[in-house]
């Protein structure tokens, strides 16, 4: 019996390319033993190093963008933690002016303002007024500053950070039909900008459909024959975070389709697993067994069946 494998083996092309890239980069990479300069070497922060130099939280900064002494914008300790005169004078008996941990007494807005001093603009332009801003989410609720590895900036570990608050989405991602977020191939930030956008749900594009089209552009059309909810909002039928139904559908057909379609003719039949094809509206692909071009078709045939998205 013949076995058809649909996915072509493309490994050789990739490894050749990989080899070329690595060959070009290895001499440079080997220079990574370079010792970075101590972080925060700004005059006002020098006093901090009298006690904190060599400690792990400070040393870790050397491996982060906040430890790049060659960048004149790189902050010193006091840029983030405040001048902290009493902290220094008391030899650490009192807290610095501004701390960022969970137990910090500093208002979230004040903590975030310290970050936004440098990080205003770009993808954070619309932070003010965003849902996360309005809900008093601190930058450090998601980001690790004194760490070489910031999990939220790694697409494999990012979702764990988001799931700290978004438990519902964590549960949905476990469903049999899901985007490969758990597998590290899709990240929450592929669709959402947690720093705020003017789009609904902090989507990276201007609306739901334009966000989905980034990867599903074949659904965009415009088509000769359109399906209204497809054109308006993908999330009318799909739950992008996961579903027990195939293709991330909110419900199985026929019940999903019956939420909109008039019940005349076969459209009003109860769900059935009858094994003759015309009655098995809940088996296999359900209504889509026949209405196979459910997102729209560009077939211009002068036929009635085209309008019902069957060809």
């Amino acid at each position: 019996m013949a076995v058809f494998r649909s996915r072509p083996a493309r490994g050789i092309r990739f490894y050749v390319a990989l080899g070329a890239v690595l060959a070009a980069l290895l001499p440079t990479a080997s220079a990574s033993v370079a010792k970075a300069s101590p972080p925060g070497d700004r005059t006002a922060s020098a006093v901090c190093l009298q006690c904190h130099a060599g400690s792990e939280p400070v040393n870790a900064l050397a491996a982060t963008p906040h430890g790049v002494a060659a960048d004149p914008r790189t902050p010193g300790c006091v840029n983030c933690h405040g001048a902290s005169a009493s902290h220094a004078a008391s030899m650490g008996q009192s807290h610095p002016d501004r701390l960022f941990g969970r137990a910090s007494a500093s208002p979230v807005a004040e903590r975030n303002a310290a970050c936004m001093t440098c990080h205003q603009g770009g993808v954070r332009t619309h932070w003010a007024g965003s849902t996360h801003d309005a809900r008093q989410v601190a930058c450090t609720s998601c980001h690790r500053i004194h760490s070489e590895h910031d999990p939220v900036r790694d697409r494999v570990t990012q979702s764990d950070v988001c799931f700290t608050c978004h438990k519902e989405q964590r549960a949905q991602m476990r469903r049999p039909s899901h985007h490969p977020v758990r597998e590290g191939k899709v990240a929450c930030s592929d669709c959402h900008n947690p720093h705020g956008t003017l789009a609904p749900k902090m989507l990276v594009r201007d609306n739901v459909n334009h966000t989905c089209y980034q990867c599903h552009m074949e659904k965009r059309g415009p088509f000769v024959r359109t399906h209204q909810p497809v054109q308006e909002d993908c999330s009318i039928c799909h739950n992008p975070h996961g579903s027990v139904n195939a293709n991330l559908l909110k419900l199985r057909s026929p019940w999903l389709c019956q939420q909109c379609h008039e019940p005349s003719s076969h459209r009003g039949k109860p769900g059935s697993a009858g094994l003759t094809s015309t009655n098995a509206n809940a088996l296999a692909r359900g209504c889509v067994n026949c209405h196979t071009n459910i997102h729209g078709t560009n077939n211009p045939s002068d036929l009635a069946t085209e309008r019902s998205l069957r060809r």
């Binding site: 990479a29 990574s32 033993v33 370079a34 010792k35 970075a36 101590p38 972080p39 190093l49 009298q50 130099a53 060599g54 400690s55 400070v58 040393n59 870790a60 900064l61 050397a62 491996a63 982060t64 430890g67 070489e148």
Partner: peptide
């Protein structure tokens, strides 16, 4: 000399 005891190094590979 303070950094010499436990010097910060650059990013790891």
């Amino acid at each position: 000399t303070e950094w010499d005891d436990e010097e910060p190094v650059g990013p790891h590979s």
